[in-house]
């Protein structure tokens, strides 16, 4: 019986003065303390009783967390506390990382995106996380501050299951960096929810085409949301596209491979059989979109 609290249970709001202090606190209270960014997952889960945090450690004010910077040589860095609306409204992001903008736009509602962050979306590791696919395909690397100081954590292998990542107690993801994108790339995020906007994904498909020395002249990347315990790379489909000239039949073949390569579950949002079909159709439509776009 789903019966959450009317409000949040008793807890301490903690606002450390530095990353060191925050990390130390999280280590000392491992299992009871949570780093707190936009709170849009955190507050819901603590109210639900799914998380039993006694301490919410507000790291938003710490150094660099609220910065968004673009360097034409190095690329983009988004602080962990930068809300999605700010990312989506940034001209440099719009120009160089349009797939990230599109993904942000699909998350919940405007007022939720005023608080929700991309780094938060990644660290919460929901298989349905809308911005994860684009973050992977743009080559996002997390900058994590832990008990041993800063380290870089690529998203490959980062996700371990629903809500599970390689982050350890004391780790604070401070920002995510993306290398400069190729000017001729194309990226799309196609999401199917029950409502046209605002819902969690029944299926989400991020596809990207980047110029490369392949038979088609492009690399293709495909990441699937809501069809596996973690964001799922459609490797078989990518391999097909890597090795062939692209036409509608090859795209259909790749889409079929994406469908065959996933084993989604039945849940309240959708059935497994439907999800598989949607993986195929949305992958096909997404690939057609990016293929049309890069050839223009």
């Amino acid at each position: 019986m789903h019966n959450p609290h009317p409000g949040l249970p008793e807890l301490d709001y903690v606002k450390p003065a530095s990353l060191e202090e925050a990390s130390r606190f999280l280590v000392e209270h491992a299992g009871e303390a949570r780093p707190f960014l936009g709170g849009t997952d955190c507050i819901v889960r603590i109210r639900d009783g799914a998380w039993t945090a006694k301490y919410m450690v507000d790291v938003k004010g710490l150094e660099g967390m609220k910065d968004l910077s673009f360097d034409p040589q190095k690329g983009l860095t988004i602080g962990a506390a930068v809300p999605m609306n700010k990312v989506a409204a940034d001209p440099a992001v719009q120009q160089h990382y349009p797939g990230l903008v599109e993904a942000c736009h699909w998350v919940a509602s405007y007022q939720l995106r005023s608080r929700a962050t991309i780094v938060g979306n990644i660290c919460n590791a929901s298989p349905a996380g809308d911005t994860i696919g684009a973050s992977i395909l743009y080559g996002g690397v997390l900058r994590v501050f832990g008990p041993q100081g800063f380290r870089e954590v690529p998203l490959d292998g980062f996700f371990k299951g629903p809500g599970k990542t390689t982050l350890q107690p004391g780790d604070i993801a401070a920002s995510i960096s993306f290398p400069l994108s190729h000017p001729q790339h194309a990226c799309r995020y196609l999401k199917l929810g029950r409502n046209k906007l605002g819902d969690l994904a029944i299926v989400g498909v991020t596809v990207m085409a980047v110029p490369a020395r392949t038979p088609s002249g492009y690399h293709f990347g495909i990441v699937l949301a809501s069809v596996a315990p973690v964001p799922l790379r459609a490797a078989a489909a990518e391999a097909i596209l890597e090795s062939k000239e692209i036409d509608e039949a090859v795209i259909a073949e790749a889409a079929q491979a994406a469908m065959d390569g996933c084993k989604p579950i039945n849940d309240t949002r959708g059935g497994a059989a439907y999800r598989k079909q949607m993986v195929r159709n949305l992958t096909r439509n997404g690939l057609m979109d990016v293929w049309t776009k890069v050839r223009k």
Binding site: R194, N195, K196, L197, G198, D199, T268, R269
Partner: peptide, 8 residues
């Protein structure tokens, strides 16, 4: 998970 129609 109980969705109702929105403006969109």
């Amino acid at each position: 998970d109980y969705r109702i129609a929105t403006a969109i």
